[in-house]
Amino acid sequence: MKKLIPFTAVCATLVLAVAAGAADQPAAAAAPKPAAKELFPDSVVAKGKGVEVKRSQVDEAYSLFKANVAASGRAVREEDRNRDQAMLLDRIISTKLLVARATEEDKKKAAENADKYIAETKKRLPSEEFFELQLKSIGLTPATYRERLLEQAICEEVINREVRDKNQVTEAEIKKFYDENPKEFEQPEQVRAAHVLISFKDPTDPNPNPGAKRDLPAAQKEEKKKLAESILARAKKGEDFAKLAKEFSDDPGSKDKGGEYTFARGRMVPEFEAAAFATPPGQVSDLVTTVFGYHVIKVLEKIPAQKVELAKVADDIKRYLANEKVQEEMPKYLQKIREEAKVEILDPNLKVQTPAAPRPPAASAPKK
């Protein structure tokens, strides 16, 4: 089955991922010098009922925007400055308006979601230091990052309450989508397999990519191979494979689950995938070498290609369709709350045609 993208952060583009268009205080690194401030007063560039945006806020957002673009290997064109800053101002205004509509319950849920997201992000990174270095590269501290993420989460809660909850998806709509998009629910052939990884990578190498770390010296690498071969022999004799994985595997993502993964073609490194698909269920492959180390693989089950039944994907479809409805309603909703606040753009160079609506991930569902 193709995976429908969950819409977890409807306001993501309002704050440019971790960028901070809506902050009331500029980051320390971006603070203007006193002399410059005297020469160029921090003028108000937009205002409305309960909303005021100053030039320094747009400048800070633009600096963070450029840092994010640079981090992705691209460059911001100087000739696009006015257009980009107008877009950022529009998002700052939208964020401020949404935050102003938040209830205490919205704020409570948002804080929980923001902290959960930060915790999950840190788990995926090598260390706390690496996390902080990534933030520093775009001009943020952990504290300012949380503030910005909290704003994003508050926006999402307001949108959930004022837009999403008023545009519910029906069972008929779910069934219609399922029937009209059969290819979205084709599940290719899969393998359920367990493995024990004996890594021959140097654990002192700071490279965060496990497969790119340097290899251990030849003698130590040979010792690792002998260990893997001994585990292979024990597995072929019928020892409990899950216990072997929990005791010996160097794969933190699977060892606590007995080394198990379920995957289709194209999801694993070629050598691992070829061995898994070629080995009959219940059998143990020969020793497999990949960029990560030596693998002992036991195939537990072959799952044939099939169409996933509606009951198993109904919740995914419901979320997907709900996101589509939110995306359709957002421009009208943002325009409405801007008109209610009587927002004015005071700098003619920072005007855009329509309010920037939050955009979810691409509507088409990607392949697994």
Rank of each mutant, 00 (worst) to 15 (best):
L135N: 03
E247L: 14
K318P: 07
A71E: 07
V296E: 00
P252Q: 12
A23H: 07
A61F: 00
V10T: 10
D42G: 03
V44W: 02
E52V: 14
F130N: 07
F177C: 05
P210L: 01
K312T: 11
T354W: 05
V69P: 00
K226Y: 07
G282D: 06
K351C: 05
V45H: 00
T279F: 05
A233P: 06
V69A: 07
P41M: 07
A363T: 06
V291Q: 10
R83W: 05
A29G: 13
V158Q: 01
E239K: 15
K302P: 04
P358Q: 03
E147R: 11
Y261W: 10
L98A: 01
L88G: 02
E180D: 15
D106N: 08
N167H: 14
P358S: 09
K166C: 11
G139I: 01
A322I: 02
F185H: 02
V169I: 05
K255Q: 10
Q220K: 15
N113F: 08
A75V: 08
D179R: 11
E112Y: 11
A235G: 11
I118T: 06
A278R: 11
A276D: 01
R83G: 13
Y320N: 12
A235L: 09
P331T: 04
Q168I: 11
A219T: 15
E340M: 04
K325P: 00
A27C: 11
Q220L: 14
L98P: 01
R91S: 04
A235N: 10
I118N: 03
V296Q: 02
A235S: 12
E223Q: 09
